[in-house]
Simulated assay, not measured.
Amino acid sequence: MGFLRNRGRRARLSALADAIGARKGEVLGDEFSGGFGPNGPLTLGVITLRPGSEVDVAQAQIDAAVAAGYTNPPEPPCTQGCGFLKTPDMPFLVIETYVAGKVIPHHGQVPPGHTGVVVSLT
């Protein structure tokens, strides 16, 4: 029963990732983790590189989340890390950004003119 429930949850998280534009830019990683027993709740992590400044890229991701139904957006500028943790009937959403020159763990350094974005849906 847990497998079927997780399969439906995977589909919902993936559809929501598409709805909020989490896969915009160059996708470096797109995978699920957790979901069974001691591994914690099912989480979808999408890691991308996007052209533009950290402030502009973060604000565009926040705006897309609000357009998809998330409420109580974080105060700008929301850089480095912010989230939507209290929107009823929506998974937790955390957005992390990495400026050019910073290293996205396990994915390398962000090139000039780009921002790294990690979107986590739980």
Results as ranks from 00 to 15, higher is better:
53 S>Q: 11
54 E>Q: 15
81 G>R: 11
49 L>N: 01
107 H>C: 00
97 T>S: 06
67 A>W: 08
120 S>T: 11
39 N>Q: 13
32 F>R: 03
36 F>A: 11
18 D>M: 01
82 C>S: 08
122 T>E: 05
45 G>A: 07
38 P>Q: 06
80 Q>D: 08
64 A>E: 04
28 L>F: 08
5 R>K: 12
75 E>S: 13
120 S>E: 07
109 Q>T: 15
10 R>T: 08
79 T>G: 01
50 R>P: 01
89 D>S: 13
71 T>F: 03
23 R>T: 11
8 G>T: 10
22 A>M: 00
18 D>L: 06
53 S>P: 04
37 G>T: 10
101 G>M: 07
91 P>V: 10
22 A>D: 00
71 T>L: 14
30 D>C: 06
2 G>E: 14
67 A>K: 15
55 V>C: 00
25 G>I: 04
86 K>S: 14
18 D>S: 11
14 S>L: 11
43 T>Y: 02
25 G>N: 05
11 A>I: 11
82 C>A: 07
90 M>Q: 14
73 P>K: 04
91 P>Q: 09
95 I>Q: 02
46 V>E: 07
48 T>H: 02
98 Y>D: 02
13 L>M: 10
5 R>C: 00
4 L>A: 12
47 I>P: 00
91 P>F: 11
61 Q>F: 13
17 A>S: 13
113 G>H: 05
21 G>A: 10
43 T>Q: 06
53 S>I: 03
93 L>C: 05
33 S>K: 12
67 A>Y: 09
9 R>S: 10
113 G>T: 03
17 A>F: 10
36 F>G: 00
4 L>K: 05
51 P>L: 05
112 P>L: 06
102 K>P: 00
102 K>T: 10
85 L>H: 08
76 P>T: 02
13 L>W: 09
91 P>L: 11
65 A>E: 05
13 L>N: 07
71 T>V: 14
43 T>G: 01
2 G>R: 15
56 D>L: 10
115 T>Q: 08
119 V>P: 04
27 V>H: 07
71 T>Y: 03
23 R>N: 07
66 V>N: 07
